[in-house]
Design a protein around this nucleic acid. Structure first.
Length: 330
DNA sequence: CTTGCCGGGAT
DNA sequence: ATCCCGGCAAG
């Protein structure tokens, strides 16, 4: 929810900022700064959730891992919960560099709330209709995109068109920067900003995803880039937390299941849910399957660690054969 | 350094 | 199909 709001803002800013950024921050470098900021946050939640409980129990051989596993689910919610929820907004970010999105998002939210007020919470309704008075309408330049956009008197005929296309292309890098950047102009003039703009930016990176979701916005773009390094692992983790309990399961299943179903269903659903699914699709399936052959790594302990080399016969077959562990799936 | 596991080989 | 290991990547 929070994220959405920021997205809107971004769009608005984007328009104005686009002009400035177009010349200034066309380069991808812009995004890197924001990412790093969050690193600290991700580390903290990690420590609380995993390291804390895990370390003490690690001493004991078999009991250790179990206790770690179960407790984590229950205890996690309390401590890690905050971070996790935040992650759900920007899952992709976490994966990329360690949850950069959160850092900027946290600070930003407060400021955003002030401007939009409580209405922001409902994010969904607002984004679509939000606008002033439109005179001219423009169509999204993106191939599949059939969206139309209204423009204020500010927009000129030729320019409007130009900006529209310009924004999507540049937005990719710009968007990230904007999210962290302070709002330059708060006047919003996009009828359905999230829909058109977001898509355009993601388009360059991943075409298939884009068509599915025109509606969601900044989230997707970011996730794509990040996914490559450890998107599958982090991405899944971030959105999975929603249900904290199935964090391990989601890891493997989601990518496969979501990919197929998500594509078409996008039309009718809760926006919040829709968004999360879309994100998952974007980040994990494509990259993970294609580029990311290696899963990133198993989280919990595996047979080898649990039973030790001495008790190799107690391992699951997969572990004995040096394959992906089947018993302690993460 | 250790650990998890992919890719590939042997049977 | 079953079993195993070289070697890589992640930590």
């Amino acid at each position: 929810m929070l994220q959405i709001r920021s997205e809107e803002e971004v769009d608005m800013d984007k328009v104005t900022a686009a002009m400035v950024l177009t010349s200034l921050s066309t380069s991808p470098l812009v995004r890197s700064p924001p990412f790093k900021v969050n690193e600290g946050l991700s580390g903290s939640w990690k420590d609380n959730g995993f390291v804390g409980p895990f370390t003490p129990s690690s001493n004991s051989s078999s009991g250790g891992y179990w206790s770690w596993s179960a407790p984590s689910d229950q205890s996690n919610p309390s401590t890690p919960s905050p971070p996790l929820s935040a992650d759900s907004f920007k899952p992709f970010r976490v994966p990329s560099l360690g949850g950069v999105g959160n850092g900027p998002a946290g600070p930003e939210d407060p400021s955003l709330d002030d401007q939009d007020g409580s209405s922001l919470l409902f994010d969904e309704p607002i984004p679509r209709k939000r606008k002033n008075s439109m005179k001219v309408m423009f169509k999204c330049l993106w191939k599949n995109c059939g969206k139309v956009r209204n423009c204020d008197s500010d927009c000129s005929d030729g320019e409007e068109d130009f900006y529209y296309s310009e924004i999507k292309l540049n937005t990719d890098s710009v968007a990230d920067g904007l999210s962290s950047l302070p709002p330059q102009s708060s006047d919003a003039k996009e009828p359905h900003p999230g829909g058109t703009t977001p898509l355009s930016r993601s388009a360059p990176s991943a075409l298939y995803l884009i068509q599915t979701d025109h509606a969601y916005q900044a989230t997707a773009p970011v996730s794509i880039p990040s996914s490559n390094s450890n998107s599958s692992g982090s991405a899944c983790t971030s959105f999975t937390p929603t249900n904290s309990s199935n964090f391990s399961i989601s890891w493997q299943s989601p990518p496969v299941t979501f990919t197929g179903s998500t594509v078409s269903p996008s039309k009718s659903q809760g926006f919040g849910e829709q968004r999360s699914q879309t994100i998952a699709v974007l980040s994990s399936p494509p990259r993970a399957t294609t580029a990311l052959s290696r899963k990133v790594r198993g989280e919990g302990k595996k047979c080898r660690k649990v039973y030790g080399m001495e008790n190799r016969d107690m391992w699951c077959t997969a572990c004995r054969w040096k394959k992906a562990c089947q018993r302690f799936t993460d």
